[in-house]
């Protein structure tokens, strides 16, 4: 019987979007059954257009920067977009997959993507906002699969 991986994706920043999709697509390649439960800000990763995902240096002192930058300077309008652009360029240069690419790989390999119904209601999302092929569920839905999974992670 195939092993099972259950993930909770709770964050919607560009950098935090990577772990769930990398782990899910890789586990699927290793013949795991995989489900990802998208809740709170993680839910935004299921939108059709995710080209607006951003990475922020604010409150992230561990982010390697080309030059030291005080928090106050990072708050200047446009800094977040600039950091995001630089991160995307660096990723492309290093042959790192885009989130869209990894998400497609997940869908193609049968990873089940579940939208947290409560978060959908909370942020007034419409089914039309999301990509095709997702399911909706609550905490009990997650545990139905997570309870019999070999690996569980909260991201």
């Amino acid at each position: 019987m195939a092993k099972k991986l259950a993930l909770i994706a709770s964050k919607g920043a560009l950098d935090w979007a990577y772990p769930p999709f990398i782990l899910a697509s890789t586990a699927a390649a290793l013949d795991y059954d995989v489900q990802i439960f998208f809740t709170f800000y993680g839910l935004t990763l299921l939108r059709k257009d995710i080209s607006d995902l951003k990475v922020s240096p604010i409150a992230n002192p561990a982010m390697p920067m080309p030059l030291p930058m005080p928090n106050l300077a990072q708050m200047i309008p446009g800094m977040e977009s600039m950091a995001t652009m630089m991160m995307k360029q660096k990723m492309a240069k290093k042959g790192i997959a885009t989130i869209e690419e990894l998400r497609s790989a997940c869908l193609e390999s049968g990873v089940k993507l579940i939208a947290c119904q409560m978060t959908v209601d909370l942020f007034d999302f419409k089914p039309d906002d999301f990509i095709d092929g997702i399911e909706y569920g609550g905490a009990a839905t997650f545990f139905e699969f997570a309870g019999e999974s070999d690996v569980n992670m909260f991201i």
Binding site: I22, S25, T26, A29, K94, G95, I96, A97, E101, L102, A105, S109
Partner: peptide, 14 residues
């Protein structure tokens, strides 16, 4: 070549 983790594994599986 020139692809980073996890793409080589995903390409292999495919």
């Amino acid at each position: 070549r020139n692809l980073n983790c996890p793409l080589p594994i995903l390409r292999c599986k495919k």
